[in-house]
Write a protein that binds this DNA or RNA. Structure first.
Lengths: 350, 350
DNA sequence: TCTTGTTGCGCAATCGATGGTGCAGAGGCT
DNA sequence: AGCCTCTGCACCATCGATTGCGCAACAAGA
């Protein structure tokens, strides 16, 4: 990066000169500690006046260097390619800003090495806290952060070394599966052998909990889960597309219902169907764990689970605000199950 | 934010002690200036060895305080609720990381005040550069950054006070409009009075350029643009939904074609149609300036313009890398026009 | 008048890395 | 032996804000 001469920054020394006082007094006034340092109201006012005239802004580097607190909070997140993570980033930034903290978010592509490298980089900048959203290995991250005395907190995927805020994946998946079964049954389908689960990593907590919910709902409906119908092939659209395609080509028939474990996996499924079997888009029942507006409005028969991102991030900051070093509890937030939108009144033009 | 005791960070002084040398020597070795400071190869090796054993990581606050360069680059962006801006954030982070810079991105909701406040906050942290992506008022931002000697660069929306990298909106819109007209004509429709333009802000450069492309393509097709068909009502889904709804209710008929100026506006249009006029989803021709996978796969008759985000961000960093203080040129990158996907072979099961 | 307390503020060290400057010792030349 | 040139490194001030400590001025009580 080419260097450009950085011009004058107003410092507390400049203000002290103009105010005929000392830098420490100015510093105390500017950072709010002036009452405990017994600076008079009058002097504080005049300093504030001069500071605002001169356009003073504190140098956060200097403050962080001296006080160790940087007022930066970092977050790693897998991707920005879906509404769920987009909303997490957005809420995280808003809540951080509301507290005067500088949010730094970085997407790490579900790559454990990149996650660690990014966290190390953030630690170099003395971030006060790190949020691991959807991290592959939150416990390793928690460990290296603890060495530096930086607390972490997990979002979306839980860990055992720091508090975690996640959705109630089991219940969400159970209800979503149940809704699909009810609809399939109402439509007179024999869904038992033709109800797929597509996407996700079998090793991650979210996927395994959702599979558990999927299985239990099937069992409670009096059927037997078919293991070969569970295609936990990863999240990426290309992977779910390939797995879904292979499954359909091997069975030679359309499924009745498909539980898709993320919008990004749903993208792969829809892409394949749009290209090879468009009619099935209107006949198969879809369940999506995560919500996307286009999928929701366009598919006639889509049920979604929408995770309560606002509540999750709010809860997370509540923990950050109140508990300095919290236990590694897992807090579950109930997601919202959305039935398809086809219930609203049609209003067609002739 | 509660304070947690921050433990020992390894510093150059700790390493100097263990290596039996001085902090300045260690510093020189760690930051790469050791050759010009005539540190011997042997000593450099032993210091590096010890540093890695002790797990040294430089304190970037201290470095930034002393050297003025923070190695942080900030970016403001409107939202993360669509693929276009999500991709911009993702590419920005990747390119920054490849250069050893710390990316900081923040979404500012197209709110000029929030944009300025966020930029000021970033300036407090001495970011080396600020990228204004889709900023409402990039020139004001450029001005306050210039006061601090921090260069800026505009992405997506141009400004006059800093270099800008944008899509060739005129050409993209012209081609998109042309494609829609060709299809409508081929389908035997009389589209001239029923070709809407929905979404965007008439005051922003992208919208006005796209409207210009839309108009010119209509004129070149031998028709006359209808001003009341241009609904530049803002980008938000709720606004486009309301404008589109009002238009349809006032004319009492479906349009033949709709040019929608962003996926977020398309969301509003689709939402209204899904709720009130679902059949029209399959009959109206849609053009979307910006691409979304679900919209693309699900709509039978959607043409999209996909902006070349990778090229745009690469070009931006090329300017950042090579030209210290570049002229306020506007560089246009050609976007890609995508016809609907209905051309691929169908493969339906019985 | 002299101690004791309180108010109001300045001094100076400090955080960790950077970079200008100075200086000892080795080696070469006359 | 005396002088010069390099080599290799150490010393120290500095960036801007924070903070422990100290001290003058004044009031109040004895």
């Amino acid at each position: 990066m080419p260097k450009v001469a950085s011009k004058k920054q107003v410092t507390i020394y400049d203000i002290a000169d103009r105010a005929g006082t000392s830098a420490s007094t100015v510093g105390a006034v500017m950072n709010g500690s002036w009452r405990t340092r017994r600076i008079s109201e009058k002097r504080a006012d005049s300093i504030r006046q001069i500071a605002s005239e001169m356009g003073y802004a504190p140098n956060m580097q200097a403050r962080a260097l001296r006080s160790v607190q940087s007022r930066m909070v970092g977050m790693i997140i897998p991707m920005y390619d879906n509404r769920y993570f987009g909303a997490i980033a957005e809420r995280f930034e808003a809540e951080a800003r509301a507290r005067g903290l500088l949010p730094m978010t970085s997407c790490t592509h579900r790559d454990p090495d990149l996650e660690l490298a990014t966290v190390r980089q953030m630690l170099s900048y003395n971030v006060d806290r790190i949020v691991c959203a959807g991290a592959s290995d939150p416990d390793s991250i928690a460990r290296i952060c603890q060495e530096q005395g930086v607390p972490t907190i997990n979002l979306d995927l839980p860990g055992t070394a720091a508090p975690s805020i996640i959705s109630d994946n089991y219940t969400g998946a159970y209800k979503l599966t149940e809704a699909l079964i009810n609809r399939a049954t109402a439509d007179g389908h024999n869904w038992q052998d033709d109800f797929l689960f597509v996407g996700g990593r079998p090793t991650d907590n979210n996927t395994s909990e959702r599979i558990r919910g999927y299985r239990d709902a099937i069992i409670d409906a009096g059927a037997v889960p078919v293991e070969s119908n569970i295609l936990a092939c990863g999240y990426a659209a290309a992977k779910s597309k390939a797995a879904f395609s292979a499954k359909l080509l091997s069975t030679g028939r359309n499924p009745i219902a498909v539980f898709v474990n993320s919008t990004i996996s749903l993208e792969g499924v829809f892409e394949w169907l749009a290209q090879h079997n468009r009619a099935a888009l209107d006949t198969i029942l879809f369940g999506s764990f995560d919500w996307d507006p286009f999928a929701q409005y366009m598919a006639q028969n889509l049920f979604s689970v929408r995770q309560d991102v606002t509540a999750m991030v709010a809860k997370m900051f509540q923990i950050i605000d109140t508990e300095p070093d919290s236990a590694a509890d897992v807090i579950q937030i109930e997601p919202i199950v959305i039935s398809d939108t086809s219930s609203e009144r049609p209003q067609t033009f002739p």
